[in-house]
Computed example of a mutant assay.
Amino acid sequence: MPIYLDVHSVSGGVTIDDVAKAHLADLQTQGRHDVTYLRYWVDEAQGKIFCLVEAPSADAAEAVHREAHGLVADEIYQVQEGS
């Protein structure tokens, strides 16, 4: 299954606690879209969130975010894992 990295930009910054709550909502929603959210990273000061996800398409990954909490990504890239 393809792997995607999405990027969220939140003006005014973001907290790791808020992102953790949103991630839990993603986990509760992902099965309906055949998606698996794997990891996320946060830059609180810059208001950046990065999510790594296995999904059949970028649209499926976005649908999970939209349904779970409404915070859709500003950018999404299909990526390949390297070492």
Rank of each mutant, 00 (worst) to 15 (best):
C51R: 06
A58N: 09
G47T: 12
E54Y: 08
Y77A: 05
L5P: 07
L5V: 15
Q30T: 12
V7S: 05
G82Q: 15
C51Y: 10
G13K: 09
Q78D: 11
H8Y: 10
K48E: 07
L27Q: 14
Q78E: 15
G47H: 04
G82V: 15
E81K: 07
T15E: 01
I76G: 13
D34S: 09
Q30S: 10
S9L: 12
V14K: 11
K48D: 00
I49Q: 03
S57H: 02
R39G: 02
Q80L: 14
H23M: 05
W41R: 04
Q78K: 06
S57G: 09
G12I: 02
A61W: 01
E67K: 08
E75S: 15
A25W: 15
V64Q: 03
Q78V: 14
R32E: 03
I76C: 14
G13I: 11
A20S: 03
S83D: 15
T36D: 01
A68I: 00
G47M: 01
T15P: 04
A55M: 12
V42P: 03
V72K: 11
D43W: 07
Q78F: 05
L5H: 11
D18N: 12
S9T: 14
Q80H: 12
E54F: 07
I16D: 02
V14L: 09
D18C: 05
V64R: 02
E54Q: 07
T15G: 05
V35D: 09
A20F: 00
L24M: 04
V7I: 10
P2Y: 08
C51D: 05
Q78Y: 08
D59K: 13
R32L: 04
Q28S: 15
A55Y: 07
Y77V: 05
V14T: 13
A61I: 12
Q80M: 10
E75T: 08
A22M: 09
V10C: 00
Q78P: 13
V19E: 02
L38V: 04
E75N: 15
Q28M: 12
L24C: 03
V7G: 01
E62S: 14
L52H: 08
P56M: 11
L24F: 13
E67T: 02
A55Q: 11
A22L: 07
A63W: 08
S57D: 01
L5Q: 10
D18L: 07
K21E: 11
D43S: 06
T15V: 09
D59W: 13
S11Q: 03
E54R: 06
R66M: 07
Q46E: 01
R66D: 06
Q80V: 11
T15A: 02
Y40S: 00
D26W: 09
R32V: 01
